[in-house]
């Protein structure tokens, strides 16, 4: 049985339907990319899984192991072992680095030691008492990932973690996320517009276009098939 099974998901907002029957599965231990242009429905899919800033669910199901997520309160979904790195580096700006991590750890059943996060991101170690709002974009993203990881998740959802960051920081984050997947066995679902980032982390990708799943491809094929990338991703 797959870890996450999204089937025939239809969802939208007040302004209109975004997803028109999205199907995909993720197996335990995989790293999977969810790709597509702006407005293809990537973030809506993520939010439907996590239950954050609720899109209106019209139909379908999202199963996580034996649990139907659409019938589970959003704050209970985290307890199942899912953690979320939302878009735009969302943090708790008035809390310090240490407090941001501590809060994530204290709301988890079986958290990792906070010190492990500081080993993973030595940059954060030097600024434990700094408020999150006074950090650079790259540092904030590291904190957002540390915060998601400290709850010791089975599945980590990342929504465009590298958007708007300098190339060397992007490289650093790609490396960390890949290691989280490979060394710790955390299953990763990453939403990206930046195809290169997705390819460096994930082995397999689903491509969304206008709210429909149009392709399932491996990283190798995505790299080689220029026409596919051009048609659905515009790159």
């Amino acid at each position: 049985m797959s870890l996450l099974d999204v089937s025939d998901l239809e969802a939208g907002y007040e302004t209109g339907q975004i997803l028109f029957g999205v199907d995909f599965e993720i197996e335990e231990g995989e790293a999977v990319g969810l790709l597509g242009r702006n407005g293809a429905g990537k973030t809506t899919t993520m939010r439907a899984i996590m239950g954050a800033d609720l899109p209106r669910i019209i139909g379908g199901s999202i199963r996580y192991r034996d649990t139907e997520l659409l019938e589970t309160a959003s704050y209970d979904r985290a307890d199942l072992g899912i953690s979320f790195v939302p878009e735009e580096r969302q943090l708790f700006p008035r809390l310090t680095v240490a407090e941001n991590i501590h809060i994530a750890a204290s709301s988890a059943d079986d958290p990792l030691p906070a010190e492990e996060m500081f080993d993973l991101f030595p940059e954060l170690d030097a600024m434990r008492d700094r408020h999150a709002k006074n950090m650079s974009g790259g540092e904030q993203q590291m904190l957002a990932i540390a915060r998601a990881l400290v709850s010791n998740p089975e599945l980590m959802l990342l929504d465009e973690p590298c958007e708007g960051l300098a190339p060397q920081i992007v490289e650093r984050l790609e490396d960390v996320v890949a290691r989280i997947n490979e060394e710790r066995g955390v299953t990763v679902l990453i939403v990206e517009q930046n195809v290169a980032t997705a390819m460096s982390i994930a082995d397999r990708h689903y491509i969304l276009d206008e709210g429909r799943l149009v392709e399932e491809v491996t990283t190798d094929r995505l790299r080689e098939d220029d026409e596919l990338r051009q048609t659905h991703l515009g790159v």
Binding site: D53, A78, F84, P86, L95, I103, A104
Partner: peptide, 11 residues
Amino acid sequence: DNEELARAMGI
């Protein structure tokens, strides 16, 4: 600061 995020973290 961020109610949605807090909820997504299991709070």
